[in-house]
Amino acid sequence: MSLKVENVSLIFGDGNEQVRALDHVSMDLQHGQLMAVLGPSGAGKSSLLAVCGGLQTPSSGRIWIGETEITGVSRSALTRIRQQQVGFVFQQSNLLSSLTSIDQLLLLVHMRGKRPGKADRERAMSLLDEVGMSHRLDRRPSELSGGERQRVGIARAFMMNPSLLLVDEPTSMLDQQRGRQIVELLVRECHDHNVATLMVTHDQGILETADRVVDISDGQLGERT
């Protein structure tokens, strides 16, 4: 099991102002499996990603990434877990403006306290090659198209061999054709790297590519059959 969520709730505010972003959510995800979570805006998709990635602490319930329980641990421990076990692909690619494509990946090596070496560079180049970006290694985000940025974001997510990949609306800023290509790329990479992938989206076109699809509404999950 790569991700296990057990009876997790996330509540904002208090009293009459209380908003239940996640309502007793339970799920699990296997290695190499891609689960798509579909739902409209405000349904709780981003909240699910936030708690699974240790960016937010749930109000109740428990979460495991691999064998590690991430609920009830310190912020620094969460940081370490994110660094070592979680890969993120964000909605707007979220690349650092001053870094070239290859540096976006090598940064993760540096964050682990290691000076990026030849092997790291080769791995980064190989990942960028897989996503079709080997010809844009030294370009900064401002020199890339939206689809290219998203590809670099995907390569970055795999750089440190994560056991869990969290993907936030990867197609929302792209046209239909490019969105389709990005999703296909994600699915391929997820299977190739044998990484459990949780992808939240409101794009119905993704359904046929995902291994599992669940709906989210008012913070509650419901599996499609």
């Binding site: 090598l106 000076r115 990026p116 070496g117 030849k118 092997a119 790291d120 560079r121 080769e122 791995r123 190989s126 990942l127 061999n161 790297h193």
Partner: peptide, 21 residues
């Protein structure tokens, strides 16, 4: 790909000066 770390170890063990990125 996973062997990237092993390749790095080999490089580390080579005992020579190398230029990093």
């Amino acid at each position: 790909r996973r062997c990237g770390r092993e390749a790095s170890d080999w490089w580390s063990c080579s005992g020579i000066f190398m230029s990093d990125v």
